[in-house]
Structure formats: structure tokens, C-alpha cells
């Protein structure tokens, strides 16, 4: 690996200062499970790594029934899975985080890193889109909040400007009869990159759909929403038939590529299957809330 310096600030302000001071050649490191491989392959050559794991607010998981969730960007995936409030209130996001790599990887890989790495196939991204999550961003010009649906700007690209970092992910408390589900298809049983990922968050009013969001991964240059499918479901009973139709509508949003994991045609097909199953799974959980 090339030579670089390393700092581990304990406040966001220090981190922003470090990231701003070294222009475009400074980079945040959390788990390093993407970054260190990119550096070893000389895909990225930062001169300074800013380790944000010692910043308390970036390690926080706090849920409040009124104000919702504040999830530190540096929280490793395994801590999401181990957190009772996460499992109870955001089971779809929790299962997405628990699908990323092995336990070794989950012990290091962070939720914020999965977001900022901006892989079109990132597992937590469709789940965050379904939950209408917001990224809290802090930089040299203060802080701003960007909805996850506006965070990605291309494969591996996001809206962060020089000196900025995501400090927390904010999610509203789920309204009554709301829950989420994330499913993905991979070519093997475990530990691979998604051919398709589908996240759904459903709010029920009696047996009718009051609100729903569907996020899709690995079928476009960035993780995307499937609004046509969501709009169709509003006011309808969510059953096999309507979920099937929503899956068909979700397919219209998919613009995948062929790669070694699957053909574009196959991915489009799987979008329908996973969307249907994620919707039915989220609804089943929502009925119990």
C-alpha cells in the first residue's frame, strides 16, 4: 500500500478540519472493508485517513418513540443487529445490515461506509430508501440534511463536498402498523453481492395500505425508489395479487446491466419477485405492530 498519514479525531469538528485541510486527498475510514481493498489495488490513494470511530456521536444508536432514530454513521453492522430497538423498530434495515459479508466483515463495516461507498448494490441502501432515511452531513460550512434518495449521484459517487462527512443517519419513528423488510438475491447461499436487493416499508390502515416505499438495489447506476409500484398500492389491500402487480410495476423502474452475477433480463425478473415478497413480509410485520 502507498504511504499515508492517519488521524483519529474525537470530535466531528476536528474531523471536518482534517478532511478540509487535505483537500481531495483525505478520506474517512470506518471499517475499511471497502476502502483498504481499494487502496491496496491503488484505486484510491488518499494521503490522509481520518478514522472517525472515536467520535461518540458517530457511534450512537438512540431511538426515541417521538423523534425517531439517530444512528451514528460509524456504527458497525453487527451492532445494529445486536441492538434490540433496531431489531424491533427497523427489522428490514437490521436484516440488510446483517446480510453484509461474514461476521468478520460485519464487525468492522459501518452503516455510513455502506452508504458513502455508494455501491449500486449496497444492501443497506434499499432499506434506507424504504425507510425514507436522511443523512446528516457536516462540513466546513456547517451541517445539512440530505434524504438518502438524493444522496447518490452515480456508481460509487455521492453528494458529499470537500471536507464533508456523514455523521448520522436519521429515521422517523415508525407510525403505528408500520414495518419494513429487506430481501436480496445472490448467486450463492451467503456472502455475495446482490443481483437484486429490495426493501419495502409498509404502513397499514386496517387492511389497506396507508403508506409504502420501495427501494431497489443493483438494478440501476444508483440504488433507486420504485414510486410507480408504491403509488399503485395506496388505499389497496396488500395481498398476493396486489403485491404481484406492484412487483410488475417495480420492474419498470429497473435499468440493470449484464454482469458476471446475472443478466439484465434476469435482474428485471427478480425485481418483481423480491418486491412482491418484501411487500408481503413488511405487511405481515406491520400487522403485528
Amino acid at each position: 500500500m502507498h504511504e499515508f498519514s492517519y488521524e483519529a479525531p474525537t470530535t466531528v469538528e476536528q474531523a471536518v478540519k482534517l478532511l478540509s485541510s487535505d483537500g481531495d486527498s483525505a478520506r474517512v475510514i470506518c471499517g475499511g472493508t471497502d476502502l483498504l481493498i481499494q487502496m491496496r489495488n491503488a484505486v484510491r490513494k488518499p494521503k490522509l485517513l481520518v478514522d472517525v470511530k472515536s467520535i461518540p456521536e458517530m457511534r450512537e444508536i438512540s431511538f426515541d418513540p417521538k423523534t425517531g432514530l439517530r444512528l451514528g454513521a460509524a456504527v458497525p453492522c453487527i451492532e445494529i443487529h445486536e441492538n434490540e430497538a433496531m431489531r424491533r423498530h427497523y427489522p428490514g434495515l437490521t436484516e440488510a445490515a446483517h446480510l453484509i459479508g461474514s461476521l468478520q466483515i460485519q464487525s468492522r463495516a459501518s452503516i455510513g461506509g455502506n452508504l458513502c461507498n455508494a455501491s449500486p448494490a449496497a444492501d443497506t441502501s434499499p432499506a434506507l430508501l424504504a425507510l425514507n432515511a436522511t443523512a446528516k452531513i457536516v462540513g466546513p460550512n456547517g451541517s445539512r440534511e440530505v434524504p438518502v434518495e438524493k444522496f447518490f449521484s452515480g456508481p460509487g459517487k455521492n453528494v458529499l463536498q470537500r471536507g464533508e462527512l456523514v455523521t448520522q443517519i436519521l429515521i422517523a419513528a415508525p407510525p403505528p402498523h408500520t414495518s419494513d423488510r429487506y430481501l436480496r438475491m445472490i448467486p450463492r447461499n451467503e456472502m455475495d453481492i446482490a443481483i437484486v436487493g429490495a426493501g419495502a416499508c409498509v404502513t397499514l390502515d386496517g387492511d389497506k395500505v396507508k403508506a409504502v416505499r420501495i427501494g431497489l438495489g443493483a438494478v440501476a447506476p444508483t440504488p433507486i425508489l420504485a414510486p410507480k409500484a408504491a403509488e399503485y398500492l395506496i388505499g389497496k389491500k396488500l395481498d398476493e395479487k396486489t403485491a404481484e402487480r406492484a412487483g410488475e410495476l417495480a420492474r419498470e423502474h429497473a435499468v440493470p446491466i449484464d454482469d458476471m452475477r446475472g443478466t439484465a433480463e434476469y435482474r428485471v425478473h427478480v425485481v418483481g419477485v423480491l418486491t412482491k415478497r418484501a411487500l408481503l413480509g413488511a405487511a405481515e410485520r406491520a400487522r403485528q405492530n
Partner: peptide, 26 residues
């Protein structure tokens, strides 16, 4: 050296970690 094989697994504060994907300074 990519976190796939686990041959370098050590425990860090009790959790399994691929030591190839962690810096010594960490």
C-alpha cells in the same frame, strides 16, 4: 487480503475481525 478467506482472523475486543482489513494503528 480482501476479507474473503478469514485466515487472518483475530479477535478485537472479543469480535472476530480480518486483521488484513484493519490498520495496525487502529
Amino acid at each position: 487480503l480482501t476479507g474473503d478467506c478469514g485466515a487472518c482472523t483475530v479477535l478485537v475486543d472479543g469480535r472476530p475481525v480480518c486483521s488484513c482489513l484493519m490498520l495496525g494503528v487502529e
